[in-house]
């Protein structure tokens, strides 16, 4: 088993990166890896409630994020300064079991994982 941190830095719908990152996280979970997901920069938009994905011809990504726990993926981290910079708060998010991290804690998080998958 390997400790893998998936870093997701893009908004949910403009590119396929956010969805591709989630698929990689789910695959890692299916292969029993110790996988964590960090949402940072524009990636924090993926967790915002009430997304109207069908309006842009996509599936709602936040539903996939909420389903991660069902697959045993519990370690979801959010870079709090990225939230603050976009006037978002914990109340804006569709998941309440995420861990908000400061800059220092985010740096420490990178040290805790052996591998980084960057999206």
């Amino acid at each position: 088993m390997s400790r893998i941190l998936c870093v997701s830095r893009h908004a949910p719908y403009q590119t396929s990166h956010a969805n591709d990152a989630l698929d990689a996280v789910l695959a890692a979970g299916a292969f029993d890896q110790d996988i964590g997901l960090l949402l940072i920069d524009e990636g924090v938009w993926q967790l915002v409630t009430q997304q109207d994905a069908p309006y842009v011809g996509k599936k709602d990504l936040s539903k996939k994020l909420c389903a991660l726990a069902l697959y045993g993926i519990e370690n979801i981290f959010v870079h709090e300064p990225s939230l603050q910079g976009r006037l978002l708060t914990r109340d804006s998010l569709c998941l309440d079991n995420v861990q908000l991290l400061t800059n220092k804690e985010t740096r420490q998080l990178f040290d805790q994982y052996e591998q980084i998958l960057s999206f």
Partner: peptide
């Protein structure tokens, strides 16, 4: 092949380097 090939390779490598995201 599937994404499992990415995960398996990552798990058995020392480094994983991503280009283009």
């Amino acid at each position: 092949s599937g994404l499992g090939q990415l995960i398996a390779a990552t798990a058995s490598s020392d480094r994983t380097i991503t280009f283009g995201a």
